[in-house]
Design a protein around this nucleic acid. Structure first.
Lengths: 188, 188, 188, 188
DNA sequence: CATGAATGAGAGTTCATTCAT
DNA sequence: CATGAATGAACTCTCATTCAT
């Protein structure tokens, strides 16, 4: 395997297991079976490594979400597609999901947020824009896009969290029911 | 101020700000304006300090939740009472809420979980028991208590997370609407 | 039991078990079931405690040895009496013997030597004087008192060391044979 | 000079001067003119450093003693050879000798014994085996090998102790006379 | 004299990082 | 690009000792 790839996978796996601060450079290079200067050659610092680990998974994820969120579907279909995508994608990237969820609840002045906060901001922006767009068509949603996007994101994260614990089988039904329930909140 | 109290408050505030690992003992004692041996006199170790910080807030919280969850009200009233209590209580304990949320999403093998995981387990147990109890009365809830409790906990955490960002004013209406929405999911 | 006595016994027992530096004040007061200021009230410092522990046993020991060494017996009888006394006395003061032996081989600049070295010096002086005295009567011993006293002391310590390991039963025969052997070296 | 070697020499010298516990890592690295992580790079811990310091001198010593003790010479020649070797070797390794003697009289539950006790055990085994072997040829030695080896070891240590104080010149005569005296004890 | 609480100084150890080879 | 060795700074924690009560 390519060294760069190898290091990233190993590091992400360890970050997911123990968290950013609890993982030492030594531990990473041991498990990746490389040496420290090699790691520093590719990533410059621990911070750089963490950043690029996040980027590797966040980048395609945000791109796809952006695409889904700006498609021509109606808002409920979009939510279903997004939730479905997140869960399906998450199934194959559990290390990333764990790291992502930890990041979402990281303390505001933590290094994790300082390094990876921008990804969360972008994610929020995508969802907000989607709800802003939807509120043009659904009058009763007006002025509450922050509310909706935050709640929807909580719903996604909550589902991902349960995914990590293998608590349920994801199927179309789950996604449909969940979004339906959410939609009920909007119309009521 | 009492030293023990002083240390706990200072430490919790720092843990909330930066996270367990990123906070050093030195930083805590500096801000609390005491010395290291004093801290160790009371808490024995950083781990012990973290544990007792959690305990201080978790203990009454779990007790109250337990009381609410086992009261004679119907399940929807209980959910409203619990959510309301969590939000009201959380407003006055923001450092704890941040620490709690970070703990909820901490990596599975992290020290945070090793030390504070038991509190989360107890919280889960309380909610689960509540839904198990409710499923005796509501036939259509049968066999899904894990599902309900996990979702309800996600909803609580999502609300608390928004509370920390001062994103909304908590009022009876928010609580009612949120639980109502949740209930719709149950009956549908 | 008297507190002062209690502390000394406890401390000596711990010093014998682990050595001066490895024993903490905390450990002593725990085992003696008193508090730190009490210990400091009686002994002023850890150093003072160690000193007085040594003194308590060294004082009568040196007095008795001095008496035996300056008696009117011939040198061989004296050696037998001294060895016998050391062994008999040692049997009832094993904590002291262990501490004494450790002290004998302590590094030259160690605190142990700085505090307790004077007792060893006095012990050496007593033995040397004995052999100096003997050399007036035994011409062939002349000029070798340092040699004899050092060797005799090595013999005593070696016997005490074995006593601690319960390796032999002390009886008159052992003492007689040992000194006889030693005497052979003198005459040969 | 090689860093590893440098550290070991410096450390052994300090251990000999003040004892294991009284010497701090800081002191060692100061005198060796290196930094702490360098020391830990080579030895892992203070304990590891102490162990390897002992090993460096014990290893060849035990090998040579083993060779001498199992040679074809008679028991008296062997004792002379061993004593002679110990003294000659000791003259050039005074730091080790001091550390060795301190170790020999260290309290039973001390860290020194826990770390270095195995070397003393091996040394005892070598001497015991020698006397066991000798007792096949000398009937009157039978059943007393523990006795002989312990006494002989006491004699060696006593001689080494005097060597450290520069109390005598080692020559063939001293060794001959000492062993002769010891032998007299066996035959009498 | 007894106590719980407090302290300055320093213990051993590990961190992310860099350098010469 | 890979390596073993080296580093300054920071880490958690403990020491003997003292103070107000």
């Amino acid at each position: 395997m390519d060294n760069r790839e190898n290091i990233q996978k190993t590091a992400l796996s360890l970050f997911a297991e123990k968290g950013y601060h609890a993982v030492g450079i030594q531990e990473i290079v041991n498990r990746a079976e490389i040496t420290k200067p090699t790691l520093y050659h590719y990533f410059g610092s621990k911070e750089g490594l963490y950043l690029q680990c996040l980027e590797r998974d966040f980048s395609p994820l945000l791109k796809e979400l952006s695409r889904l969120a700006s498609s021509e579907e109606d808002i409920f279909s979009k939510m279903q597609l997004i939730l479905q995508y997140m869960l399906k994608n998450g199934k194959n990237h559990k290390d990333f999901i764990q790291t992502y969820l930890t990041l979402c609840s990281a303390p505001p002045l933590s290094e994790e947020i300082r390094i990876g906060g921008k990804f969360l901001n972008e994610l929020e922006r995508i969802l907000e824009d989607m709800f802003i767009d939807a509120s043009y068509k659904h009058g009763n949603m007006r002025g509450r896009h922050r509310n909706y996007s935050a709640t929807f994101m909580g719903l996604i994260n909550s589902s991902l969290s349960r995914l990590l614990r293998n608590e349920f089988e994801i199927d179309g039904d789950f996604v449909y029911r969940t979004v339906h329930q959410f939609a009920h909140g909007i119309y009521s």
